[in-house]
Design a protein around this nucleic acid. Sequence first.
RNA 1: CGGGGCGUAGCGCAGCCUGGUAGCGCACCUGCUUCGGGAGCAGGGGGCCGGAGGUUCAAAUCCUCUCGCCCCGACCA
Length: 572
Amino acid sequence: MRYSQYLLPTLKETPSDAEVISHQLMLRAGMIRKVAAGIYNYLPLGLRSIRKMERIVREEMDRAGAIELLMPMTIPAELWEESGRWKEYGKELLRLKDRKEADFCLGPTHEEVVTDIVRGTVRSYRQLPLNLYQIQGKFRDEIRPRFGLMRGREFIMKDAYSFDLEEAGADAAYEKMYQAYRRIFERCGLRFRAVEADTGNIGGTSSHEFMVLAESGEDSIVSCDSCEYAANVEKAELRQSAATAAPPAASLQKVLTPSRKSVEEVAEFLGTTPDRLVKTLIVETDTGEIVAVLLRGDRELNDIKLSRLLGCNWAELASEETVLKVTGAPSGFAGPVGLKLRILADWEVREMSDAVAGANEKDAHFTGVNPERDFAVEAYADLREAVAGDPCPRCEGRLEVWRGIEVGHVFKLGTKYSASMGATVLDDQGRERILFMGCYGIGVGRTVAAAIEQNHDENGIIWPMPIAPFQVIVTMVNPNDEQVSLAAEQIHAQLLALGVESLLDDRDERPGSKFKDADLIGIPLRLTVGARALKDGQVELQHRRSAERTMLALEEAAARVAQQVRTELQMD
RNA sequence: CGGGGCGUAGCGCAGCCUGGUAGCGCACCUGCUUCGGGAGCAGGGGGCCGGAGGUUCAAAUCCUCUCGCCCCGACCA
C-alpha cells in the first residue's frame, strides 16, 4: 500500500474527549473515528488490526474444533421471551419495532438464537458435541460507553456456544475453549491473567475471565504470588482465619462523637485506628429486604458476595431515609448493639474485641463492644473485598492486586437456555435429553485497544507483530530524488512479493513528519531509504520497540526484513 | 439515572464575566525556498459560534428550554 493513496488521517494533537491512552492513540493514528457515543468508524488502518485479530481468533477456534457460522444482528422478540430475557435484560437491550409494529432487538449476545438453531437441526446425540461460533457486531446500549473501543455500544465480538449431551462433555468443551483463549492472547503478545469470575446476568455455574493487565483497566483482580489462584475481586474468596478474639476486657460504654461520621473521623477522635471499629452498613436488596452488614472498619463490602449469600440479584447501601428509619440515627452512627435487623458479619468481626461501633443515636458511639456478648450475629461469612497481602484461599501464599481489562469470558451455562427453550436430543437409549451448554466471548476491538494500552511509548503505538496493521513501513526520505524513490519502490515491491505487509511512505512530506507518523502508527519495522545511505548502497532498518538501527545492503534488505517478520510472528 | 464539565473552522483552543467587524495555532490550497525527527516566507479557502425560543436598536456573549458529548459511580466482551 502507498501511503499517498491511503486514507490515514493522523492527528498531531490529542482530541480532548479521549481519556485513556489507547483511545487517544487510535484516534491520533487514524484508526477510528467516533460517529456517536460508543459507536465508531473503523478506518482502514484500524480495520487491518481488527482483521488480524479476527484471523488469530478464527485459527484458534477452528483448531479447537469450533465451527463458524453467522447469526443475524436483528432478533425477533419471541426468542428472547422464550428464555425470559426479554423482561430480564433491561435497558442494555436495544429494542425496536418493524413496520408491522413487531418487536425486535439488536443482539447483545446470541444464546437464544444459537439455541434455536440447535433445537431445530440437532436431533441425535450422534451429532454432538457441537461448538458454533461467529464474529459479528454486537449492540449493547451501555449506560456509559467510554474509552473508545474499550467500552463501546456497538462492538465486534467473537461468541462461541458449545452443546454437549453430558455435563462432563460440557466441562471438556469449556476446558478446550479456556486453552484456546490462552493461545489467542499469548499469540497477540499480551500479558494477561485468566481469573475466576462471577457469572453476572449471562447466568450459569462457573466462569473465567481473561484479563489483560493494564493500569487503565476497569476491573480489579487478585492473583496468588505462589500458586495458580487468580480471581476477579468480585469473586475472590477469603479464608476464615484461625485467629480467635481476645476475651472481652472492657464494658460497653456510650461516648459522644459529635459530627464524627466516617470511620477515619471516629477512630481519630477516639484515639484508635479504623481496624478497631465495627463498620455497620445498612443494605437494601432487590427483594426489598433490609439487613445490617458488619465489617472491620478498614474493610470494604463486596456486594456480590453479599448478594450471593442472601440469594438476591443486587444489594446496595440503603438511602439516608431508610438508615434513619431503621437505626433511629443519621448514617454514620449505625451499630449492631440493640439493632432490630438481620445482622450478617464478615468473618473478621468475630476476631474483634473491645471494639468501637455506632450507638444508633446521633453523635454517639459505643466503646468496649464485643460480638456475642453485646449483640448477636445471624451468620458470619466472607463478605469483604480482598486487598493486596491477604492470604491466598488455596495455599500459603499472599494475594497481589492488579488492574485488568476483560477481553474474554468463558461460561459454563448448564441447561439454563436449553431447558427454557427446549433444546434436546435423543440419547442412545432413545431418551430425550436436555443439552449442556457453554458460551465463550472475546471482545475483538477491546483486545486490540488493550494491546495498545500495553504497547506504547510517548511517540505512539508499538504493535506486537501479529496484530500490526502493516509489518513494515518503507520510508522514502526524499521522493523527489529519483534514486531514492526507485530504490524504495523496488524494496517495497520485493517485500510484497515475499508476502510481507509493507506500507510505502511515498508522500512528499519532510522526513521529520514521516518519522513521527511512522512512530505514531506503530509499525514494528521501518526501512528508511535516503540519499545519504543509498550512496553506499545501504538502507536503514529500525525497530519501533527498541529503536535499534541496522544498516542493510540494498539487495538483501527485503529478505532480511522478511526473515525478521517471520521471527517476530513466531516469538510473539 | 445521580453528580461534575464541555459544545466557536478538520484538530487543539481564545473570545462570553462587562452585548457592537468571529479570532489564534496546527491542518488544508497556491507559489518560492527548504529537505534524515512534526521547516520558512508570501498569498488564499473554510464558520447556521450545537439547536429552538426570548430580551435588546444589536446576541457567540444575557435569559429559558432542548439536543449532543466527556468525566466520576452501578453493568459488561
